[in-house]
Design a protein around this nucleic acid. Sequence first.
DNA 1: TAGATTGTTAATCGATTAACAATC
DNA 2: TAGATTGTTAATCGATTAACAATC
Lengths: 227, 227
Amino acid sequence: MKKIKVSNNVIRRMPRYLRKLEELEAQGIARVSSSELGNLLGLTPSQIRQDFSCFGEFGQQGYGYNVSALKEEIAKILGTDRGYSAVLIGVGNIGRALMDNFCFSAWGCNLLCAFDVNKDIIGGQINGIPIKSMDELPAFLAENKVDLAVLAVPKEFALSVTDALTENGIEAIWNFTNVDIAEPDSPLIVENLHFSDSLLALSYYISEKKDEDAARAARMERQKAVK
Amino acid sequence: MKKIKVSNNVIRRMPRYLRKLEELEAQGIARVSSSELGNLLGLTPSQIRQDFSCFGEFGQQGYGYNVSALKEEIAKILGTDRGYSAVLIGVGNIGRALMDNFCFSAWGCNLLCAFDVNKDIIGGQINGIPIKSMDELPAFLAENKVDLAVLAVPKEFALSVTDALTENGIEAIWNFTNVDIAEPDSPLIVENLHFSDSLLALSYYISEKKDEDAARAARMERQKAVK
DNA sequence: TAGATTGTTAATCGATTAACAATC
DNA sequence: TAGATTGTTAATCGATTAACAATC
């Protein structure tokens, strides 16, 4: 009965499958095999079948997978049909970018309200989403079922706002601040989008490539010298 | 001589070490052991020592690591001292958020210029960074050493802009569009920040927790019934 | 039916953890 | 010196890949 714990690596690949399947569906492609999908994503067919088998049997021998059906299954696995609702804290640049451009509803998430301390924007709305004062946050969280908070405040306030959120029953945070907001063994669910971590990883890969290119060039130079 | 290829997992942890070390340094802490660092980050001491040993010997037996020195070493490993420069394509909400708030220079990266198609903002600047027309992009890339491009355009333009960038010599892209911009075996270095993938992973973890909580509640209910 | 492709079991590979000699 | 902690080698664990019977 109890589903075996699915590994992190698998979970991180699921949204990629979902996006690719949506793409295929938009192209009018009805079926896909694990090896086709593997080619598109740079994964082995085995891995793809293993990943799916964590959650059930979605394919058909000799045929492969129905694109639309598989897409639906994966969306469901990821919880997009559960009607989660969210609040956003911090209507700065990033907060505004999310409110304006990020389609929460496309991923099954309902952004109810945003909160800020800036009097100039409190009472207004962006893209139909009202902006309330931080003072109203506890009452709002008490009155509404809110499954997650989007944290987009300046990093100085990250920890205090996190405390305020958890004290008012928030159990999951989508963290856009460049700060770790939870202790290693905290029960709070935190999904970090650390821009700097991402840029630094990119910086490493660039460095690695430049080093390789330089080494290759040096090797060729030496060869030429020998001749 | 040739450094053995460092695994992805290790590279993804390096920025986390860097951030934590900066934090410790700011707190005036001079030394840290692998087990202390492990406690702070939720990693084993072994793993930390293994990770560092991919790049050299930065500690001292009986003492641990000097926080500042280790921080510097890791920053260097990640390439922050290489003076990389960047351009940003797409001055929408996200682009603006990055220009306004993201401190590229703190991570050793120099944001030279932004590009957009919107005549209203071309010629202006944000946070000291000039905004030029997309038409000027090829000339700019020809005249300046640019190591990476930040891609923050609407997703419809992601692929065509990527083509334009690679045709003009760009080898690395920091991708904020919700689209895969490179084939699996492309030589282009792409670092993705797929917001939706992140939100979906969070959605999964929330679902998993709710399911666990529900299962626990059901178990307790059954127990109560037995009594 | 024959061909294709799944789901799953077994084999391999790689990453994490444990152990320990070296040494500050 | 004794205690602490590293860097590294060996052991374990988990994830990926390969293989194949089942079956559409």
